Simulated assay, not measured.
Amino acid sequence: MAAVVLTHCWKGLSQTLSYGRVTAYSPLCFGGLRHKSTLQYASRPDLPKLAYRKTKGKSPGVVFLPGYASNMSGQKAEALEEFCQSLGHSYLRFDYTGCGQSEGVFADCTVGSWKKDVLYMLDEIADGPQILVGSSMGGWMMLLAAIARPEKTKALVGIATAADYLVNAFKTLPIEVRKECEDKGEWHIPSKHSEDGAYRLTMDFLQEAENHCVLQSPIPITCPVRLIHGLKDEDVPWHISMQVAERALSPDVDVILRRHGQHRMAEKDDIKLMVYTIDDLIDKLTTLV
């Protein structure tokens, strides 16, 4: 059964964890990187190169999966690198095909092609078992990767998880709007996160994405799952995290709802919560071993 925690104040959680090991690292995690990892490129036969940054260390490692049209250089991704360096655990962040510093054309990408990117990085670049941390669409990628590579996935942390969101959001549009989009062959989603003020999704992209939806049936994931979502998220409704929690087969699922949290969850206290959640999972997994 999923546990739900509604939090609107950091003070209580901070006091709860103040006696643990993570407080020794908190000044480092939120003040800038000391030793930024080196940018590298993964070459794949007949496929675009993927840009990534990797820090070697202990197991389990941590892999960060960015959101739609995002990249590995955001605040959450960089804070996690600093945290993992401080703790001595391995860490991997990368850009999907067509995003950030990776090769490829964004408009040609699909949910399936980005899933292949994630699986390649898990199979060829990441060492040993991993905790997958997915932000927004990265939360969807995280679930797909955990289903496909259960032996590599030791725990999941979703931040504003957007599982199936693009597909289901289109289906909720008025029928006349959907018909207009289908006639034009694309759907424009207004977004303050896009430089153009909107994301452009083709009907082909949405149709392909349907092949990767996970919320229609039980999700065959049995590792620990932590889902953090803001109640003020105007992009991806928080109830999607609740749906993931309800459908995941894992007996160890927690949902944390932040009253004032927004979609990006990039405020200092949001990042602290993410880091403490991962630290708790590392401690749990290490104790189990």
Rank of each mutant, 00 (worst) to 15 (best):
L13N: 04
Q15N: 03
Q15A: 05
T16C: 06
L17H: 04
L17Q: 03
L17P: 00
S18L: 05
G20W: 06
R21A: 11
V22C: 06
T23P: 00
K36I: 10
Q40K: 09
P45M: 12
D46S: 14
D46T: 12
D46W: 07
L50E: 11
R53W: 12
K54I: 11
K56A: 15
G57M: 11
F64M: 06
G67H: 01
A69F: 11
N71H: 11
N71F: 09
Q75W: 04
A77G: 07
E82V: 08
F83E: 04
S90K: 00
S90R: 03
G98C: 12
G100I: 11
Q101M: 15
S102F: 13
V105T: 15
V105H: 11
C109E: 15
C109M: 15
V111Q: 05
K115R: 14
D117E: 13
D123L: 09
I125S: 11
I125Y: 09
I125P: 10
A126G: 08
G128W: 03
P129V: 14
I131T: 10
I131A: 03
L132A: 09
G134Y: 00
M137I: 02
G138Y: 01
W140L: 01
W140Q: 00
L143N: 01
L144T: 00
A145W: 00
A146E: 01
A146Q: 00
R149T: 02
K152Y: 00
T153C: 07
K154C: 09
V157H: 04
V157Y: 03
V157G: 03
V157W: 05
D164V: 10
Y165K: 04
Y165Q: 08
N168R: 15
K171G: 08
K171S: 12
I175F: 06
C181Y: 15
D183C: 12
I189C: 03
I189F: 06
S191Y: 05
H193E: 12
E195T: 13
M203F: 02
M203S: 07
D204L: 13
D204I: 15
H212Q: 02
H212K: 00
P218R: 04
R226F: 03
I228C: 07
L231M: 14
P237M: 08
H239R: 07
I240T: 13
I240C: 03
M242K: 04
Q243P: 01
R247G: 04
V255N: 09
I256P: 05
G261A: 12
Q262S: 13
A266S: 15
A266L: 13
E267C: 10
D269M: 13
M274G: 08
V275C: 12
T277F: 08
I278C: 07
L281G: 10
I282L: 15
